[in-house]
Amino acid sequence: MDRVYGGYEVKTYEEQFYVDAVSGVTLEAYENEVLGIAGESGCGKSTLLKIIYGYVKPPLTVRSGRVLVDTGKGSIDVLSMDLEERRSRIWWRYISYIPQNAMNVLNPTSRIRDHFAEVLRLHQGLDREEAYRVAAEYVTQLGLPRDVVNAFPHQLSGGMRQRVVIALALIMKPRVVLADEPTTALDVVVQRGILQTLIERQRELRNTLILVTHDMGVHAMLTDRIAIMYAGKIVEIGRTEEVFEKPLHPYTRMLIESLPRLGDKRVRKGLAGQPPDLRSPPPGCRFHPRCPYTTDRCRREEPPLVEVEKGHWVACWLYAKK
């Protein structure tokens, strides 16, 4: 991603405002890696994901920027295409999406095999019977029981449905998989299973998995690199181990410190205050109202993202001295 500015234009009868959800985000994701995007609720992670995918429908708009995807034959700017093009050329082929609340995204009046058939017939031109066969094969490969394909969504448990959704996302072997909060609302046991599946598939296909979640534990377990978002801006990116052991940004520090550790019986310290209202974000560094190290400069100027160590970037005046 390159300097993407996107947000929501909301128009009501009384007012008109713009929610600056993704502000000047520049990111890179590499092949065969799991990139996690972490942050509080409402920081813009899901929006970011949607923009990467190209699912930009009103009231969401992208004001400027590019999203380049390497298709193996060159890179294409997702944002430069219109929805139709994205639909026919990129979606599901090169990028796929596992939406939030995946348990409810299956059509209650269609069987599972039809869900697969839809995608297969559309993108690969298979006919129905073939598609059914392929689907059945595929789910068994994934370790799901075979007659899952004949079931209706409401007959499956939440975890099973989640796995189906993941299976659907991967069936065409896309190069990038975007997963939005894949484990929220699942119990820990199932959660573990899902995450296991995700990671196994990724290793198998050697593609890029961009994982968005606010659960730091998941990031710790799965991701190779992690990006921390706050109030629409990326405040820190780096290898997961490094970021966990040596969090640079004050926000990251607080996030990490709030995680429970084995053996550490101290009371966890939370973060005071609320994230800013993105309709009118604070000037300068957006974290400055809650930051214990705020300086005058923080209040006035936005800190740029600078590489402090190799592969470890941070956006904070504590580090960007130049």
Binding site: R87, Y97, N101, V105, L106, N107, E118, V119, L122
Partner: peptide, 11 residues
């Protein structure tokens, strides 16, 4: 949700 998902899948 499921309609949105269908859209997302490019249908």
């Amino acid at each position: 949700d499921y309609t949105v998902y269908a859209e997302l899948r490019g249908l």
